[in-house]
């Protein structure tokens, strides 16, 4: 296995008396898709927020290429967030600027890292809209006129335009209907393979995890109760909670 990009160990975070994370360790390697699954309130989203530097843990370290994320200045962390990292929110409204056109949304990250040529920004935006299957004619439309699935695809285009190495995804398929979910998962899978992206995806959808992930972490009450290769964890669950989780998936 290649050297891990992101490593974290001993992460602990409490909200008052409630433990959100208890001694969590995780690492993500180049080109690897890691899924974090678990029930609501198990600390999945908190873990993602801590790993991406949005929240500071009570104890433990997160390292990006050996550098401690929480020890970096805010400027360095923001630069990381708009160059080497990407964050796809569950609700596309959190990740998009709704009063800025689709093209402007995709171009924002480019302009934030110093692109100053309108024609090039436009070309890049068009090529990304094509990659996420949004009609080029809608480049100047506002995202609020888009459907939920389109907004989510636009958010992905906007995040990937600067070719990040690691993308955090917080339930990217939440709130979408099943057929749209399937297309979105397909898109995420093909893009991550094509670009050699590392993805850390939080989901409570076991089927989505099986489709996308190389490795799975199962979380419960702030602890990682089981982790391993996706097929191993899902076909041969060891921990009683994982067994419960896998057996409660509805087969269509």
């Amino acid at each position: 296995m290649t050297k891990p990009l992101l490593t974290a160990e001993g992460l602990t975070l409490r909200f008052g008396a409630i433990p959100a994370l208890l001694d969590v360790a995780i690492d993500v390697s180049e080109g690897e898709v890691v899924a974090i699954v678990g029930e609501s309130g198990s600390g999945k989203t908190t873990l993602l927020r801590v790993l991406s530097g949005m929240m500071t843990p009570d104890a433990g370290t997160v390292r990006w290429l050996g550098e401690e994320v929480h020890a970096m200045g805010e400027a360095a962390r923001r630069r990381l967030m708009r160059t080497e990292w990407g964050f796809v929110h569950q609700n596309p409204r959190d990740g998009l600027r709704l009063n800025v056109s689709a093209g402007g949304n995709v171009g924002e990250r480019l302009m934030a890292v110093g692109a100053r040529h309108y024609g090039n920004i436009r070309t890049e935006a068009l090529s990304w809209l094509a990659k996420v299957e949004i009609d080029a004619a809608r480049i100047d439309d506002l995202p609020r006129t888009f459907s939920g699935g389109m907004q989510q695809r636009l958010q992905i285009a906007r995040t990937l335009v600067t070719h990040p190495r690691l993308v955090f995804m917080d339930e990217p398929t939440g709130g979408l209907d099943v057929s749209v979910q399937a297309r979105l998962l397909d898109l995420i899978r093909s893009l991550s393979r094509e670009l050699g992206l590392s993805v850390l995806i939080v989901t409570h959808d076991i089927a989505a995890a099986r489709l996308l992930a190389d490795r799975i972490l199962v979380m419960r009450r702030g602890r990682v109760v089981e982790q391993g290769l996706t097929d191993r964890v899902l076909d041969d669950p060891q921990h009683p909670y994982t067994q419960l989780l896998v057996s409660s998936v509805l087969a269509a």
Partner: peptide, 22 residues
């Protein structure tokens, strides 16, 4: 204030981009 502190001015360029696009 934070955007000024970090010289993070992509937002202003987005506004100019929107003008040209429209």
């Amino acid at each position: 204030k934070r955007l000024h502190a970090l010289a993070d001015y992509g937002l202003m360029h987005v506004r100019l981009y929107e003008d040209i696009a429209r």
